[in-house]
Design a protein around this nucleic acid. Structure first.
Lengths: 247, 247
DNA sequence: AAAGAATGTGTACAACGTATCTACGCCGAG
DNA sequence: CTCGGCGTAGATACGTTGTACACATTCTTT
């Protein structure tokens, strides 16, 4: 029945993370999950997600195209490995602050993490759902932050998820905008918005979107995603506080 | 200089939406943006985003593989067309309710829309940023909902964006979970969580995530994404209300 | 020292996005 | 009613991608 452990990673049913923590069953140490993740992340950081190719990765590692398949079962698992790898960078806050400050700090640090690795926002949402150790550790820390509030498990998770969903939602949009601007060589959002984006000019010229147009021409903080992020984050945290303590 | 209007859509700099609204310059009406979008959406609804292939689309339309390239410049624009097409389904609320009810209704309808077209959540966030007519119309309606509150344009957009980001964040995760379950033939989230997902079992067995584990085993509403969505949405709306009226 | 498993290599293929050229069908001008 | 020309669809082909599979290599163990 449990007759795994025969072939390479390809057909192995053992989860990636279990395999990863086995002490060091490896002869010939030229490759390792860590080395693979590091190389892949470096490429993605520098050239975006599209640059990640099994062949490119192999080249980067100085190895044959199929070599990495001994460690990841396919490209999807490679991405999973990359995501977990960078989430390891996130320094979780200590126990000194209250729930609100802790949740805020995690949100802010998540944003900084994603801004360091823009390709995170190019992934489909499903890739962000994968339960990897470093990602679950973040959820764990968030849950622990609200532990003293005497919430039932469902409410606790709802609180954490609300902040988390908001965070990922905004940052996804922010990074998409950044990548769009970078891809076109634009430097400020104003440039994007006025006439360089033919899409938008056309739409605004139809006159069907007056309120949207007003924001485009009168918004002063369109170039300040940090302000936008933190403003909304305060709304969200306020809302949680209101619900938890009002009644 | 402005020497466009020569070749097919491939090299045409005219934005997709301008082209689309030109009355009907087309002889031989076997293909049209609308027909293309409809066919592509049908395939994606039934078989997921991966089923969308230029060849598959052509087969579906009873047409040669390259035919659609007269109407969309490539696969990216096809996806843009699909996204805008389904956003046309979203019925925007009238003017009878207040800002809060309007924003909530838009959020709820957005969720319903995405649940009807699960592939929307398989797209990278950048695809959701594209400024297409039907998508901008939603933003426009949201902005108009807060117009009476006397907010400066930046704050108004921050409010709208907060709700919108939360909405997309949660739904992305919800649908990723649904697709994961569907892909494995699981029917309830409990099944996913207990032992059928080797990933999770392994992680929980490490004992490093007690709070997370508690939710897994004691959460009663893990199978109720509707409750989760609406609970968080109320938090967010509460927070906005608090900020706008408190000071 | 020899055996056996773990690790990397080489070759190959099917599927994809899309460039390019050719052929067809609908239109208005005569 | 005919005919030319332009816009539309077809056919063919190329480069790139993910990955299956069989083979060669190297380390560990006894």
């Amino acid at each position: 029945m449990a007759a795994a452990r025969k072939d390479g990673a390809g057909k192995d049913e053992t989860p990636l993370w279990a395999r990863l923590e086995r002490p060091a069953p490896a002869p010939r140490q030229t490759l390792s999950p860590h080395r693979i993740a590091t190389a892949a992340v470096a490429v993605a950081d520098a050239e975006g997600l599209d640059a990640i190719t099994m062949r490119r990765l192999a080249t980067e590692l100085g190895v044959a195209p199929m070599a990495a398949y001994r460690y990841v079962s396919g490209k999807d698992e490679l991405v999973e490995l990359m995501v977990d790898h960078v989430y390891g960078e996130l320094e979780l806050p200590g126990d000194t602050s209250g729930w609100r400050e802790t949740l805020r700090e995690i949100a802010v640090k998540t944003r900084e993490l994603m801004l360091r690795h823009l390709w995170l926002a190019q992934l489909p949402p499903s890739a962000m759902l994968a339960l990897t150790p470093n990602r679950v550790a973040v959820s764990e820390r968030s849950l622990r932050a609200v532990e003293g509030l005497d919430l039932d498990p469902d409410t606790a998770m709802a609180v954490v998820n609300t902040v988390n969903s908001y965070t990922h939602g905004v940052i996804g949009a922010e990074i998409a905008m950044r990548l769009l601007m970078a891809g076109q060589g634009w430097s400020s959002e104003q440039q994007v918005f006025t006439s360089l984006a033919p899409q938008l000019s056309y739409l605004l010229d139809t006159g069907r979107y007056p309120a949207f147009e007003q924001y485009i021409y009168q918004g002063r903080r369109k170039d300040d995603p940090g302000w936008q992020f933190e403003t909304g984050l305060e709304y969200v945290l306020d809302g949680i506080a209101a619900r938890l303590f009002a009644e």
